[in-house]
């Protein structure tokens, strides 16, 4: 069929794990925005949801680090983290290895994506699923872009990965939704956790909403590290979503929530 839904959202573990420490005036509208995204996602009646994440050493490590990966398993378990720490119950998520295989074969025509028949979800996928698929109804295909262990894939390759995902989604008969998760500027899991460059975030999101490819790809990693921290490297997932969707974006929620360690974002992009 085609790509039928595209969106981006934050995945910071504090969103669930430190929920009570956030200002309700910010937290509750964030949760409401996640709810709106959930409704729109399910209204698109996807046969499967690809979640492009920036996982944090749950599966992939510096002994053999793929720049890009897609899951090809019957099912997936998560969260890998302590459930009391993340405050998301453990669940088994349904996969679809046949669909994964067909998508991977097409993506490989232009991007050398790794595949994985084992994949344990960390907060990068579980926080979004907690809000977007609370009843565990969807078929999930996990994707990953290495945003954690440099050297990192160039932004233009993240764009190419998004284009390849779109081409693959358009080549299968199923209805596919795509959600990319990550942070914009943030310095997670450091003493600077909670530092957020709001101006940088808004500028990036403006480029994303306008589907301004050149502007999105113009950052060097040195500039991103300086202005947006190591967490800023995760813009790769948002860039891939823009490349896949091709349309104009809509920001449903953005606000810096320091105890969540990120400028929390919920946005969708029209499929063009």
């Amino acid at each position: 069929m085609s790509l039928v839904f595209s969106g981006i959202c934050s995945h910071a573990p504090g969103i669930t794990g430190r929920a009570e420490r956030a200002d309700p005036a910010l937290r509750d509208p964030l949760y409401k925005a996640f709810g709106g995204m959930r409704d729109a996602l399910h209204a698109a009646r996807p046969d499967a949801l690809i979640v492009v994440a920036a996982e944090h050493f749950a599966n992939f490590f510096m002994n053999n680090m793929p720049a890009y990966a897609l899951g090809m398993a019957e099912n997936y378990d998560g969260p890998i983290e302590d459930v009391e720490w993340l405050r998301i119950p453990r669940r088994t998520v349904r996969g679809n290895p046949d669909l994964s295989r067909r998508l991977i074969v097409e993506v490989q025509q232009s991007v050398d994506v790794a595949y994985a028949e084992e994949w344990r979800f960390d907060h990068g996928i579980m926080v979004p699923l907690h809000f977007l698929d609370p009843d565990n109804r969807l078929t999930i295909i996990p994707g990953n872009i290495n945003c954690q262990g440099p050297p990192l894939t160039p932004l233009r390759r993240a764009w190419a990965f998004g284009e390849a995902l779109r081409r693959a989604c358009d080549a299968v008969p199923e209805r596919i939704a795509l959600v990319a998760t990550g942070g914009i500027s943030h310095w997670p899991a450091t003493p600077d956790s909670g530092m957020i460059n709001v101006d940088w975030d808004k500028d990036f999101l403006d480029r994303w909403v306008r589907q301004d490819k050149d502007a999105m790809l113009s950052y060097t990693d040195a500039e991103t590290y300086r202005d947006a921290g190591q967490g800023g490297f995760e813009i790769r997932t948002f860039i891939a979503a823009a490349a896949a969707a091709r349309g104009q974006g809509t920001i449903h929620f953005y606000a810096p929530i320091p105890i969540f360690a990120v400028g929390c974002t919920v946005a969708t992009m029209e499929i063009a």
Partner: peptide, 15 residues
């Protein structure tokens, strides 16, 4: 690594 601290040793950021 890439996780150097930017703020001062006695600063508080969040949490």
């Amino acid at each position: 690594g890439i996780y150097a601290m930017l703020s001062g040793v006695d600063e508080k950021v969040a949490g």
